[in-house]
Computed example of a mutant assay.
Amino acid sequence: MRVDLALAAVSAAFLLTGCGAEDDTQRFARQAVESHVAGDAAYEDDVRCTPNPRPWLVETQATSVICAVRKTTGGCDWFRVDLVRDTVRVKAEVRFDQPDAGCVLPS
């Protein structure tokens, strides 16, 4: 019984850490992609991006993020956001990555 309870607690922790709100990097990348495709009738305003990696539950800062942008005709294109640090701040360099890549992002 104790083992079942411990497994349930660990499973809940994994779900909470992996299925929460977007992190700061995701938000920054999403907003950059939204600005990049703004006014392009080929895209809806549904943008989702990969999170910062968390190997062994320790978050590391991503240098590149992939974002899926839903197309008005269906499906998604992927955009790559490279996070480039200059002397003062981080800039987002957005570029088209893959056409019709699907709407499910790698984890």
Rank of each mutant, 00 (worst) to 15 (best):
M1Y: 01
R2K: 10
D4L: 15
L5D: 15
A6W: 05
A8K: 14
A9F: 10
S11K: 07
L15G: 14
L16G: 01
G18E: 15
G18K: 15
C19D: 07
C19Y: 11
E22V: 13
D23S: 11
D23N: 14
D23V: 08
R30I: 13
R30Y: 06
Q31R: 13
Q31G: 03
S35K: 11
S35A: 13
V37Q: 04
G39C: 13
G39M: 15
Y43N: 08
E44M: 00
D46F: 11
R48M: 12
T50F: 05
T50E: 10
P51T: 02
P51K: 00
P53I: 09
P53T: 11
R54M: 07
P55E: 14
P55D: 13
V58Q: 15
E59G: 08
I66A: 04
A68L: 13
A68K: 08
R70L: 10
R70H: 08
K71P: 00
T72P: 01
T72Y: 03
T73V: 04
G75Q: 01
G75C: 03
C76Y: 00
W78K: 06
D82V: 00
D82Q: 05
R85K: 05
T87A: 07
V90R: 07
V94W: 04
P99D: 07
P99M: 03
D100W: 02
A101I: 02
G102M: 02
C103A: 09
C103Y: 00
V104S: 09
V104K: 14
L105P: 03
S107N: 15
